[in-house]
């Protein structure tokens, strides 16, 4: 069994009313992206979640945003959200300090297929902030390293300064049978790593197209290109999982905002096995 126990799940008072939680620490990852370390809602229970799930994070008086959980599911006593500062809610959250409070509703949504990956090679492909929802999977894989085959982590970011979790990427790369390849869209002469899009990186790894499970998260265009590349390399759609983003107001399938064809991204996803959504990915403005 994979350790993502949900027995101690925090009781949610009402699905539209947040529980209050306290910031333990804020860490700036890059110029515009920060991680909030949060003490879970103070009702004594651990805040259990599955890798890939998200919370609706409420900033006092300003609003709420759907943000994936980026901490280790085996350590439910401290939650982490890595947040890109892009609007009023995230700007407000970016100013919070130790001891400040936020509201949390969740965890919501379907997570990554960690169980299914047992015994297989796993390729994690992330673009930009997309590494945040994948970090809990990496923690889970690493924690039980022997249960999985080869682990490949491919990560693309805008520039070297935009890379998240650099220290951890370094640590993961040193694990047995584990490769971490990072690329950036723009480099300078001081950057010794790869420059180019993340799809290029598949040329450098010899992936076993039959026994690899791929988990992809990043901007939708990046995922589209990645999925194309993977299929060109002989992977079937069934081996590919992606995590999607849409506007969400409730997170629980009631507000209608996150619909993608017949799917509600919030409750049917955000993680989907590719065949569930592939036929709509090429359609415009769905």
């Amino acid at each position: 069994m994979i350790e993502t126990t949900l027995e101690n799940k925090t009781e949610i008072k009402s699905s539209m009313v947040p529980a209050l939680a306290t910031i333990r620490r804020a860490i700036w990852e890059t110029d515009d992206t920060f991680t909030l370390l949060i003490d879970p809602p103070a009702d004594g229970n651990a805040f259990a979640f599955k890798p890939g799930q998200f919370n609706m994070v409420y900033a006092f008086g300003v609003g709420e945003s759907a943000i994936s959980i980026s901490s280790d599911p085996a350590k439910p006593n401290m939650l982490a959200h890595t947040i890109h500062r892009v609007g009023t809610v995230t700007s407000t959250l970016s100013k919070l300090k130790r001891g400040d409070m936020i509201g949390l509703r969740g965890p919501f949504g379907a997570g990554w297929p960690v169980e299914e990956a047992v015994g297989k090679d796993v390729c994690i492909t992330a673009g930009g902030i997309g590494l945040a929802p994948l970090r809990p999977v990496i923690y889970s894989l690493v924690r039980q390293r022997e249960k999985f085959g080869r682990i490949i982590i491919l990560y693309g970011a805008r520039s070297p300064l935009d890379l998240l979790y650099r220290v951890e990427l370094e640590q993961w790369s040193k694990l047995p049978n584990t490769e971490v390849i990072v690329t950036v869209d723009r480099g300078d002469s001081s950057w010794k790593g790869h420059i180019g899009v993340v799809t290029n990186l598949f040329s450098y790894i010899k992936m076993d197209s039959r026994s690899t499970l791929v988990m992809v998260c990043g901007p939708e265009v990046m995922m589209k290109y990645t999925v194309e590349e993977l299929q060109r390399r002989g992977l079937s759609q069934e081996q590919i999982y992606i995590s999607m983003e849409r506007n969400m107001k409730c997170g629980i399938g009631l507000c209608g905002h996150c619909q993608f064809g017949p799917k509600f991204i919030c409750k049917d996803g955000p993680v989907f096995r590719l065949p569930e959504v592939h036929h709509l990915l090429d359609k415009k403005e769905i």
């Binding site: 515009d32 609003g63 945003s65 890109h84 500062r85 892009v86 609007g87 009023t88 809610v89 995230t90 673009g127 930009g128 902030i129 693309g156 970011a157 805008r158 935009d162 869209d185 180019g196 899009v197 799809t199 290029n200 990043g218 901007p219 265009v221 990046m222 290109y225 506007n247």
Partner: peptide, 22 residues
């Protein structure tokens, strides 16, 4: 060429138009 186009899109760029909801 395809990769260059993707690079041009600057997909991770801070097209920060999040506004009120983000």
């Amino acid at each position: 060429l395809e990769a260059t186009r993707l690079q041009l899109l600057d997909v991770y760029g801070s097209a920060a138009t999040g506004g009120e909801n983000y």
